[in-house]
């Protein structure tokens, strides 16, 4: 009796070079990859002004005007100031609660108005904006600590956003159109 061949040689695709191919691809993507996390100062612009609606009246004491000229010199409420003072001044303006008659009445009404010249360098502007946002961050941080959280980030992790702190201390930064300058 003729025995039937039990096993036929299976048609196999040679897979020994699989690892090599994968390696090549891997190296390609390793070289090409740039894991740069985009960081920056996030802002929300106001919608374009409606000509029929008049801008709301704001009491002068509630606005902290920060002016910057083309040389990066700063004027806060008509007083010259250094960049490192900005944070403290904004902090005291926001948390004034009507104590100082020249500063804001309440945190909700407090506005920081930023204006630069057209020739102002972007670097100086960002430096100043950074300080202002830093002031708000420290306000939120101290509020969160008073509520028993580690810091504001911890508070956000628990309560999400928007949250009561953000409602009580809104970041009202007004970015005015720059002056044409000289």
């Amino acid at each position: 009796m003729i025995r039937k061949k039990k096993t036929r040689e299976g048609a196999e695709v040679p897979s020994s070079s699989l690892a090599d191919i994968a390696f090549l691809l891997l190296v390609f993507f390793l070289v090409v990859t740039t894991i740069d996390i985009d960081t920056g100062i996030g802002l929300v612009l106001p919608p374009p002004p409606d000509p029929e609606v008049e801008p709301p009246d704001v009491r002068e004491r509630n606005i902290l005007t920060v002016l910057m000229n083309e040389r990066g010199l700063i004027l806060i409420n008509d007083q010259p100031a250094a960049v490192r003072d900005v944070q403290d001044l904004v902090f005291s303006h926001v948390t004034n609660r009507g104590v100082d008659p020249s500063l804001s009445e309440s945190p909700q009404q407090a506005i920081v108005s930023v204006k630069t010249d057209r020739q102002t360098q972007y670097e100086f502007y960002i430096e100043m904006l950074d300080e202002i946002i830093g002031a708000y961050r420290s306000v939120w941080n101290s509020e969160a600590r008073d509520l028993g959280y580690r810091d504001y980030q911890h508070y956000v992790d628990v309560n999400g956003e928007p949250n009561p702190i953000r409602r009580e201390f809104p970041m009202n930064i007004s970015l005015a159109e720059p002056d044409p300058g000289t």
Binding site: V44, L45, P46
Partner: peptide, 14 residues
């Protein structure tokens, strides 16, 4: 950007 109604911006910084 305001006129284009693209209001969320980000000043990219290091």
């Amino acid at each position: 950007l305001r006129l284009a109604d693209a209001l969320r911006i980000n000043y990219s910084t290091r």
